[in-house]
Write a protein that binds this DNA or RNA. Sequence first.
DNA 1: TATATGATTCCCT
DNA 2: GGGAATCATATAG
Length: 189
Amino acid sequence: MSVPSSASIDFFASSVDVARSLIGSTLLVNGVGGTIVETEAYDHDDPASHSFSGPTQRNKVMFGPPGRAYIYRSYGIHWCLNFVCQAEGHGAGVLIRALEPVAGLEIIRVRRGLNEKRLLCAGPGRVCQALGITDTHNGLLIDQPPFQLLAPEEQIHVLTGPRIGISKATDTPWRFGLSGSPFLSRPFR
DNA sequence: TATATGATTCCCT
DNA sequence: GGGAATCATATAG
């Protein structure tokens, strides 16, 4: 292969399917990023989802066209990145929780103020800091500049488990991870 | 208008 | 292992 292929992710699929199929894809922002190793699915019927109580000023992007970025402020400090999916108006998304840093390592280290590769993108807030993602990216298409989404280069094995850092629907196994990756925000068991 | 809270991370003990 | 930092948003009054 000579030309990088765009990841053929169908964002009209369910958030669970999208979350699983994103594992192993490469996400870049202005050429900086890496391999997606951890995601979580959130759905309209899901008490843990921002979209559960219907559209608001904050979450309205989740109810718009699929394949766009939904970005929100977490704990007053961090930005978190989601991909909108399912049919328009449904209110479903996939949280990007961790990357294996591949491109622009030096830029990422400066942004993160950290040298240890394992901790550069291991967590949703860390991913956004490393890639320079803020609310200015909210609503942008994730396969158009400055974003790039590339398909996995080889076969990968995906782990499944309960989601992290939420207080509702904590038994729902909608967290997905790249098997054996040392770049997960937390291990699967 | 006012208050409570969180899809987190970092630093201290 | 525990708690602080810090603020946009949601919800109540």
